[in-house]
């Protein structure tokens, strides 16, 4: 059986809020290492990969591999019934028909119990190769969100061009063009504003802004975001969570003919 207790319901609320417009029905794969999810959007252009390691929970117990097939719209409806600061416990049997959620208020003596009916989901699972990326950019997640939002008003696509010490986001649209450049920036006083660009070779790739704007819904999960790029491979957008857990998005590039 599965029993996983989260100190704060907000983590799961934010994860589901961030991915539910991209993927609808997903298997949450539970085993002794934690709870994982991999799902592609309908067009097979973007992929969500979530890992909540067992250390994220306290306690965490899962004796067997259990796949919880959940409709994210339903999941969100139930998670909205939890206060951000509530303690959240997920429970399921070994061959479950439902997943149970218990929300406990740390301040009040209130316990809320919900069940969500599970579904059988036959999901395509992609093998993602370990990649040494040519460019890794770490930047404030809010900054990345703003860039994507601003440029999406002008164009459907953005070119991300990484070169030594600088990364440039460029778009060309019907009404005009836009370009935002960021340089390596490190401040002891405001480390949350740091920008770090690691580069082994220059990279230039074009991506759909519609998907990037969607990924940025995860900005509330982490103050910083990591963009990993190599020429001719999908972009990795990673939000790191506590205890080595993560929410990752992959996006296939737009490629010239």
């Amino acid at each position: 059986m599965l029993e996983a207790r989260l100190e704060q319901a907000s983590i799961l609320k934010k994860v589901v809020d961030a991915i539910k417009d991209l993927v609808q029905d997903c298997n949450f794969d539970c085993n002794d290492s934690g709870i994982a999810l991999q799902a592609m959007d309908n067009s097979h252009v973007a992929l969500v990969s979530m890992m909540l390691k067992s250390d994220t929970f306290s306690p965490f117990r899962c004796d067997r591999n259990i796949a919880l097939g959940i409709n994210l719209n339903s999941f969100q409806k139930v998670l909205r019934c939890a206060q951000n600061e509530d303690i959240l416990t997920l429970k399921a049997d070994d061959s479950p028909d439902v997943v149970s959620l218990v929300f406990e208020s740390s301040e009040q003596d209130r316990i809320s119990e919900y069940d969500i009916k599970l579904m059988d989901i036959d999901q395509e699972h992609l093998g993602i190769p370990d990649t040494e990326y040519a460019a890794t950019i770490t930047m404030p997640s809010g900054e990345f969100q703003r860039i994507c939002r601003d440029l999406s008003a002008l164009s459907e696509s953005v070119a991300i061009e990484a070169e030594k010490n600088a990364v440039k986001f460029v778009c060309n649209g019907d009404i005009g063009n836009g370009a935002i450049s960021l340089r390596n920036h490190s401040s002891v006083e405001k480390p949350e504003q740091n920008v770090n660009i690691e580069l082994s070779e220059p990279v230039a790739l074009t991506f759909s802004l519609k998907y990037l704007v969607n990924f940025c819904k995860a900005s509330g999960l982490s103050g910083s975001v990591k963009l990993c790029l190599s020429n001719e491979v999908p972009l990795l957008v990673e939000y790191e969570l506590a205890s080595n857990s993560y929410l990752r998005f992959y996006l296939a590039p737009k490629i010239g003919d």
């Binding site: 592609m40 067009s43 097979h44 252009v45 973007a46 992929l47 395509e124 699972h125 992609l126 093998g127 993602i128 190769p129 696509s157 074009t206 759909s208 491979v233 999908p234 992959y250 296939a252 590039p253 737009k254 490629i255 010239g256 003919d257």
Partner: peptide, 14 residues
């Protein structure tokens, strides 16, 4: 204009 690729081109089915 460049065309949108899909992930199957890069990642193998498991």
């Amino acid at each position: 204009p460049p065309k949108q690729a899909t992930l199957g081109k890069f990642f193998g089915l498991q």
